[in-house]
Design a protein around this nucleic acid. Sequence first.
DNA 1: TTCGTATTACGATGCCTGTCGTACAAGCCG
DNA 2: CGGCTTGTACGACAGGCATCGTAATACGAA
Lengths: 110, 110
Amino acid sequence: MPTHMRVLEHPDVEEIHLEAVLHALADPMRLEIVRFLATTEDGAACSEIELAVTKSTGTHHYRVLREAGVINQVYRGTAKINSLRSTDLDTLFPGLLASVISAATRRSQR
Amino acid sequence: MPTHMRVLEHPDVEEIHLEAVLHALADPMRLEIVRFLATTEDGAACSEIELAVTKSTGTHHYRVLREAGVINQVYRGTAKINSLRSTDLDTLFPGLLASVISAATRRSQR
DNA sequence: TTCGTATTACGATGCCTGTCGTACAAGCCG
DNA sequence: CGGCTTGTACGACAGGCATCGTAATACGAA
């Protein structure tokens, strides 16, 4: 019997705000997370994405992304699977996510 | 003879960074400035764009936008004319500015 | 040169945020 | 059960930032 519900709050589509999304993307670590998730089919666990920060800080960044509406998080066992809310974002801000990911990826290849 | 050079520092194209641009756009006031500039042909003076903050704060936001490479600023008399660096931004981050402006404009019409 | 307009500079303030360490919880597996 | 993996909660800290008020500067016009 879990004492904590392990349920993660996600904003509804109409609660996603442009400024919050832009702010969430305006960080190197979070951009790295988003860039990685864009390359996966069904999302990835936090542990699969190597970041140059401690796990505490990683948790913080995942939360910022989730609360801004950029990613979806679900528990699978002890792991937490992250995936991009591509459809929701593309409905709200057509082309935005694609152009950010494309620019971030192009730069990381230099 | 001006004691101060009245020359405004702008980043070169290769000095414009994605994170800085996203951060610059992740603020309601600055988004409002960008949205307004997108509707003008040849830019606009600071005084033409009404913001719900004092002029000191306005100056701060214009500087953030300029230093991030989002806008260009030139003096014309006492006025300072602002314009979007659309071409530079579109070269670096194709589609980004357009999708942000489009999303901001669509929302402001609701 | 004096006045008015447009904008900046500087200092202060309070909040936000990225970072960490330590301690803890949830779930799998032997 | 006991350990291992994965991730969280909490507190702390430093730096960044949006905001303001006041004083000052640059330029054009009278």
